[in-house]
Design a protein around this nucleic acid. Structure first.
Lengths: 341, 341
DNA sequence: GACAAAATGAGGTACGCACCTCATTTTTTG
DNA sequence: CAAAAAATGAGGTGCGTACCTCATTTTGTC
């Protein structure tokens, strides 16, 4: 015999199809005793609801909202593109995905968007935003409405989100530190750290991990106090220039956040003399080019395609309240060199 | 209006449902002219067959056979486990997966298994086996029967397989070489290469890539002729001992294939004096432990979970002859350090 | 024990598609 | 032009589930 169906449940539980249906879909008007009987039949038979048939019957569409920061950012752009791709490929998967843009530094505006989403009957929301009390509360309200919520890229641990899709930034920073340490020829080298992340939390955590590994395993390296670029090309150029002039013996540069293009350009004049080891984050088109042309030694990154698909899978699983294959959803901290691009 | 259905096609093409069905399922008895009319309607409407409904209607089960080498091998074991997991999670995905074991060095036996599979009405087969003329021919015969075939881990390019799920081993070797080079403190270090892969092709390609990168980018390093362990613990211990005695200044060890456990044990006595950089392949439990305990510096690997799921997705796509999202199916060459485990 | 309220059963329709049969129309062929 | 062959239409059934209605039975209450 094939897979058990609702009919089999009805038969072995000694009830009618209607009652089985009431139990399966948590409809009211069934005595607890009957509910138990049906449930017993269900797991004695090993019944598994045929999701595709169920979704067909109810003409289901998974309505998900993706909330990502606006503004020029290659990482977010590629993430958006991956989402687009996944969504397009998924018109066959009953997916209805809409992207929203938020100004990353304006909690009030973010809350506004989340409220609009809350009143638009979405089943799931994925959010990439810095953690502020306002945002946290807005997410709590979404959750109260029964919306599945995942944090994307940057975690929102206190918001009660159902899941976090992204990497552990401390570990990412540690990985960068380990590579930086092992790539150094001079055990007493000076390392320049340049920060300018949009999501403050990420930068802080990476820095933390980086410093910790250096202290633990490469105690002779000299990590300079970090410079803040704030995404301003000219400013970056200036501070880099000053840093190299003050420390002609810089042997490593760690770029914690975005703004890599400006940074790489600013370093260029000093590369030949110092040939410092350069390590950064996120495999954007800029970084890809820099790897190929040997302008950078390693990029620590997360697979944006995986991020997008994982977020969708997780939201779906939460909606169906199905178990998810956690090993598939763990986003790896990838190390990319010129050779394994 | 919602998504177009077969009814819409029938209406706009001015034919009956039966004819639409005949065209959609390539049944005989339709004039070319009518076929064209229906197809025009299909793409003018942007119709996409609802696969889950179709599969429901035909009670479809995707029957796939996975052919993997037998014998003690942690990599294959974890791959088998991942498959198991994917298959279990996929009883809801209409998957019927069966695993076969083959003696890796016996082409005749492999062909036997493939023939049995050929007469068992599988829709798809994934094969991890060394490329020999016999195997190639057996695969060609499978293809002739209309079975979808993917090569797993080790490519079978001349066999006419539909797809290769795995990494480029030359690039993997290059990655190992690049890391080895950059991790070296002494630009004139001596590098020991130990080989013992079950699938000869992989080892050769990795070696090729490794040597090429060293020659191109670290020309002062001295790569010693490779040692062959053949998976024999005692033999490995002996040759490692001799190598270190002959070359007390070995500063790097590259393990190309399997048999890592024996190798690591054999190196142990020389680690403290030489502290060579050690790099190997495949993140097996042994390698994981070795990373954590600092007995090895880096592992080049491929995500076995991804391998298993990708193979399944690709086979499915081939059966449905659907387009596949290539970016999702490209298996990355992963670099694993202690910090990004 | 009568009555209201709650629980259950019986059966239908729909989702989008596959697959089948048989009648009818159109085309081909000699 | 008639007969044979090919093409098409009409209509039904089933896949496994959701959701609905209305009748019937069971339960609890005073």
């Amino acid at each position: 015999m094939g897979k058990p169906t609702v009919h089999d449940i009805a038969k072995t539980a000694g009830v009618s199809l209607a009652t089985v249906d009431r139990v399966l879909n948590a409809r009211p008007g069934v005595r607890q005793k009957t509910i138990d009987r049906v449930n017993e039949a269900i797991d004695s038979l090993g019944y598994i609801r045929d999701l595709s048939a169920a979704n067909l019957a109810r003409q289901r569409v998974y309505r998900f909202a993706f909330v990502l920061p606006e503004g020029p950012d290659q990482f977010v752009d590629t993430l958006r593109a991956s989402l687009q791709e996944a969504a397009a490929n998924g018109q066959s998967d009953r997916l209805g995905i809409k992207q929203y843009r938020i100004p990353p530094r304006d909690p009030h505006a973010i809350v506004g968007v989340l409220q609009r989403i809350g009143s638009s009957h979405y089943e799931g929301v994925a959010i990439m935003a810095p953690e502020t009390p306002e945002v946290r509360d807005a997410i709590l309200r979404l959750k109260e409405q029964g919306v599945a919520v995942v944090a994307l890229v940057s975690d929102l641990p206190t918001s009660g989100r159902d899941w976090f899709v992204g990497t552990n930034n401390i570990a990412a920073g540690r990985t960068a530190g380990q590579l930086m340490g092992q790539f150094q020829k001079d055990p007493n080298g000076k390392i320049l750290v340049v920060s300018s992340s949009m999501l403050a939390r990420d930068a802080i955590e990476r820095r933390l991990g980086f410093d910790k590994v250096i202290a633990e395993r490469f105690p002779d390296l000299n990590v300079l106090p970090s410079l803040e670029g704030h995404g301003d090309t000219e400013r970056i150029a200036k501070i880099i220039k000053r840093a190299f002039e003050l420390n002609p013996d810089i042997s490593g540069v760690y770029s914690i956040g975005s703004g890599n293009k400006s940074l790489l350009e600013a370093i260029e004049p000093f590369r030949i003399a110092n040939s410092p080891i350069i390590i950064g984050h996120e495999l954007t088109p800029t970084m890809r080019k820099a790897l190929i042309s040997d302008h950078i030694d390693a990029v620590i990154t997360q697979n944006v395609g995986h991020l997008a698909r994982s977020a969708i899978r997780v939201l779906k699983a939460k909606c169906d309240n199905a178990k998810l294959l956690e090993s598939q959803e763990r986003i790896r901290i990838e190390i990319v060199l010129r050779e394994n691009l």
